[in-house]
Design a protein around this nucleic acid. Structure first.
Length: 427
RNA sequence: GGAGAGGUAGCGAAGUGGUCAUAACGCGGCGGUCUUGAAAACCGUUUGAGGUCAAACUCACAAGGGUUCGAAUCCCUUCCUCUCCGCCA
C-alpha cells in the first residue's frame, strides 16, 4: 500500500509505475483516488468542525445544569441536536469515501525498485548469476520419486489413501534426510546471527487478511472448521503477523529472524497439483528468514538474504542461479524480488527453490509496523526469503548428489545430522 | 467444556454520566542537576492516528451497535486474556 501523501504529490510517478507493471487498467484509479481523497478531506474537515462545536456546547450544558439554568441548557440541547442531524449524513459520507479510498489504494501497486527489469510476465525474468557448474552426468538421473523409492523412502499410495493427492509419507533415510536438511538450515542461519523461532502454525482471520490479499487467501489458506483459525501457508504469516500494529524501539531493529514451520497450501489456480511427486504439494516444511529493518537498510538486507540461500545450497553441492523478477511478474506489494533456482540435471534446467522479497514499507504501512525514532515514528521495511523448503529441495539434492551406483552422497556439513554417514545406499 | 475475574499509555494501575483523558499515581524510558565515574536523590520530559506552514481542531479506553445534549463509565452483541476445575501430549 502506497503512502497517500506520496500519491497526492506524485501522481505521474505512480502512473508511470503502473505502466511499467503492464497494469494500464489501474491507471484511472490514480485520478479517482486524488478526487476521492479531496472530497474525503473536505467532508472530514467539515465533520471535525461540527464535532468540535458539539463537544463545546455539550460541555456548556454541563455548566448550565450545575448552575440550574434549565432554559439555557434546553436551548443548547436543541442546538446540539441540529448539529447531530447534520453530522448523521456527513459521517456516513466520510465513511463511504474512506472505504472507496482504501479499496483503490490497496490495489495500486508499490513503486518498484529502480533496477527492476521491465517485462510482462515470468518469461521476461532475468537471470542474474550462476553459482556452481550445472553438470549433466553421463549416467541417467531418474525422476525424483524413483530415486526416493530406490531407498524405500516414500509412500505416495498410502498418503493418497489417508489424505489425498498432494500429500506424502517420507520414510527411512529420505525422511531422515528431510529432517537433517531442516536442522542444518536452522543452525546455518543461527550461525549467521538470525534469531531462531518456532511460531504458531495457525493464525486468526484478521492476521490472514492483514498479510495477504483476498484472492491469495482463497487460493492458499486452509480454514479450521468452527474456529477463527487458518493453517499458515508459510511462517512469514505468523512472523510478520506478530508485528501488526507494533511500534518497535529503534535500538531493537534490525530484527533478523529465522523460523521453522510446516506450510499448508490449497494450491488452487494456475498450476494445481497436477504433477506426480513432491514438487507441488499441500503440505511441506520450510526454514524461512524474515527481516524488519530501517528503510535505509533494506537494500543491504535484500542482498544478504538471497546470498544466504545461495550459500546454503552451494554448501550442499547444488548448483543454483538467481533470477530477478521483472516488473510484470512482481507482486503488487513488492519493491523487488528474486527467485533462487536449483539445477536439475534430469530436466537440464533450473527450477525454483526459494524466493527473496523486499516489500519496502508497503507491508509495514498496511499492517502498522513502525519504528520509534528520535524525531517521530516511521514505517519499517520488511523482507522475507526462503532458506530451504523440503521436500521440494530434496529433488535438487537427490538429483545432484546421485552417484552412478545409485547411492547418494551426503555433503560434509550435513553428515552430523545423518549419523555421520557420508552416503546413503539403495535398498 | 464448567465456574469466576478482567481488557484504559511501554508496563502496573486509578477513574462508575460533564470541570482528573491536557489519562491521576507508581514503574520503566529520555534529558538535566549533583558525582572522578556510577548508584541514590532531585528537577524536567514521555500514547498513537488524522489535520495544519505552524496552530486550532478531530478521532482512539478490546471490537461493533444502542441510550444520551454529552459515554471509559449505562444497555446489547461479539472477541480476547487470566485464575481454578475437567480433559489431554
Amino acid at each position: 500500500m502506497l503512502d497517500i501523501k506520496f500519491l497526492r504529490e506524485n501522481p505521474e510517478a505512480v502512473k508511470e509505475n503502473i505502466k511499467k507493471k503492464f497494469q494500464d487498467e489501474k491507471l484511472k484509479l490514480v485520478d479517482e483516488v486524488i478526487e476521492i481523497d479531496k472530497s474525503f478531506r473536505e467532508a472530514k474537515n467539515k465533520g471535525d468542525t461540527l464535532r468540535a462545536d458539539r463537544n463545546r456546547i455539550s460541555k456548556e450544558i454541563g455548566a448550565f445544569m450545575a448552575k440550574k439554568l434549565i432554559d439555557d441548557a434546553q436551548k443548547a440541547k436543541e442546538k446540539v441536536k441540529e448539529i447531530n442531524d447534520e453530522l448523521l449524513s456527513l459521517e456516513k459520507k466520510e465513511e463511504e469515501l474512506a472505504a472507496e479510498l482504501k479499496k483503490r489504494m490497496l490495489v495500486i501497486p508499490n513503486i518498484i525498485g529502480k533496477d527492476v527489469p521491465i517485462g510482462k510476465d515470468d518469461s521476461e525474468n532475468v537471470e542474474l548469476e550462476k553459482f556452481g557448474e550445472p553438470v549433466v552426468p553421463d549416467y541417467e538421473i531418474p525422476y525424483h520419486v524413483d530415486i526416493m523409492e530406490s531407498f524405500d523412502g516414500i509412500d505416495l499410495d498410502s498418503a493418497r489413501k489417508t489424505s489425498g493427492n498432494g500429500f506424502y509419507y517420507l520414510k527411512g533415510d529420505i525422511a531422515r534426510l528431510h529432517s537433517a536438511v531442516l536442522s542444518y538450515a536452522r543452525d546455518f542461519m543461527i550461525d549467521r546471527g538470525f534469531t531462531y523461532y518456532v511460531p504458531p502454525f495457525m493464525i486468526r482471520s484478521d492476521v490472514v487478511t492483514g498479510v495477504m490479499s483476498f484472492a491469495e487467501m482463497e487460493n492458499m489458506m486452509y480454514k479450521i472448521e468452527g474456529e477463527d483459525l487458518y493453517l499458515i501457508g508459510t511462517s512469514e504469516h505468523s512472523m510478520i503477523g506478530k508485528f501488526i500494529n507494533t511500534i518497535i524501539p529503534e535500538d531493537e531493529v534490525p530484527q533478523a529472524l529465522t523460523s521453522y514451520s510446516p506450510c499448508f497450501r490449497k494450491e488452487v489456480g494456475a498450476h494445481g497439483i497436477e504433477e506426480r511427486g513432491v514438487y507441488r504439494i499441500h503440505q511441506f516444511e520450510k526454514q524461512e528468514m524474515v527481516v524488519v529493518c530501517k528503510p535505509e537498510e533494506s537494500d543491504i538486507w535484500y542482498d544478504r538474504l538471497w546470498q544466504n540461500t545461495v550459500d546454503f545450497f552451494r554448501s550442499l553441492d547444488i548448483p543454483v542461479r538467481t533470477l530477478e523478477c521483472c516488473s510484470g511478474d512482481l507482486a503488487d506489494l513488492k519493491v523487488k524480488s528474486l527467485d533462487v533456482e536449483a539445477w536439475s540435471p534430469r530436466q537440464q534446467k533450473y527450477f525454483e527453490v526459494g524466493s527473496c522479497s523486499n516489500l519496502g514499507d508497503a507491508q509495514a504501512r498496511r499492517l502498522g509496523i513502525r519504528i520509534k525514532g528520535k524525531d517521530g515514528n516511521y514505517f519499517a521495511h520488511t523482507l522475507n526469503n526462503t532458506v530451504v523448503a523440503p521436500p521440494r529441495m530434496l529433488i535438487a539434492f537427490l538429483e545432484n548428489n546421485l552417484n552412478e551406483d545409485g547411492s547418494v552422497s551426503i555433503p560434509e556439513p550435513l553428515r552430523m545430522y545423518m549419523g555421520g554417514k557420508s552416503k546413503i545406499e539403495k535398498k
